[in-house]
């Protein structure tokens, strides 16, 4: 095929556009890749020197307890009376509508309030994650007040991710958590209208609190079942799942073959059928 000079000139424009597009695409994706590399290198910092099941590289305790300031109890009381007491009673002793909170520990209060589940809008349905009504210090004040009423229950954990092992976390997560929350942490519906929520918005403290207190239908995992170290490992893995290594491209919501089937049929076969429609003839 021979081209005239003019043709060559015209050729250059779309070619340049195509090259520019490919380069831009590559740049875009390689940025994603470098982000992935970054996150994996930061991961490596935490675990590179350790093997699964061994020590975790940091001498610091994997989980420390948040000390609540007793001076905030008064504020906590005020907030509790204003927002919680109508259901849980004036002294959190419980009513016919809501359970007794005494002795459940600061972690329980912090988990339910900081995830926005409490105060509850509809007591008949499973409490859903909402934007929290209280800021951090108000939440801690309520926790301080309720835990001052009776002793017992787990305190608020603070997770030191530097002392946690990602790969140990994977093993523990797949054993203890994946059956409900799914192996990618996306969550799913359980029987009778309840569900295992997605873990993608949880903070390290909230994850550890959930493990220790077993909110709602979730089982409780005490210190003799999962050590503090193991909880920290799980937290580290859940944090990883919130932004996992999607080396293969768009993650499709991490819900597995259902989404893949739709993409394969609608995008894959769909595009090919359109191509076929172009190539082949139509009805005569």
């Amino acid at each position: 095929m021979s081209f005239h000079k003019k043709t060559v000139g015209r050729l250059l424009v779309p070619v340049a556009l195509g090259v520019a597009a490919s380069v831009a695409g590559m740049a875009l994706f390689s940025q994603g890749a470098s982000a992935a590399t970054l996150s994996s290198s930061s991961v490596a910092k935490g675990v590179s020197s350790v093997t699964y099941g061994g020590t975790r590289g940091s001498s610091k305790a994997p989980i420390t307890t948040l000390k609540l300031n007793p001076s905030t109890i008064k504020l906590g009381h005020t907030l509790f009376v204003e927002n919680c007491s109508s259901c849980h009673g004036d002294a959190a002793q419980g009513t016919s509508r809501a359970p007794n909170l005494q002795g459940l520990g600061a972690a329980t209060i912090d988990f339910w309030v900081s995830t926005g589940r409490m105060p509850l809008a509809d007591p008949t349905a499973q409490a859903a994650i909402k934007p929290p009504r209280f800021n951090r210090s108000q939440t801690l004040a309520i926790a301080a007040y309720v835990s001052s009423l009776a002793s017992g229950g787990p305190p608020i954990p603070q997770v030191n991710l530097g002392a946690a092992s990602l790969s140990a976390g994977e093993g523990l997560f797949s054993t203890n958590c994946a059956a409900c929350h799914t192996i990618t942490g996306v969550g799913d519906a359980l029987a009778d209208g309840v569900y295992a929520p997605s873990l993608y918005t949880a903070t390290p403290t909230q994850i550890a609190e959930a493990v220790r207190t077993g909110p709602g239908n979730m089982p409780r995992f005490g210190t003799s079942n999962l050590s503090n170290q193991q909880v920290a490992d799980i937290v580290k893995y859940v944090k990883y799942l919130q932004n996992p290594n999607d080396a293969g491209g768009i993650g499709l919501g991490h819900v597995g073959p259902v989404a893949e089937g739709f993409v394969g049929i609608l995008i894959g076969l769909g595009a090919l059928m359109i191509a076929g429609y172009w190539i082949g003839g139509r009805a005569h």
Partner: peptide, 20 residues
């Protein structure tokens, strides 16, 4: 489009299971 990211699923161990 990522398909079957087996690294996120982990190895098969008979007593482990994922929902969904």
């Amino acid at each position: 489009f990522q398909i079957n990211p087996i690294w996120l699923y982990g190895p098969y161990i008979p007593y482990k299971v994922s929902y969904a």
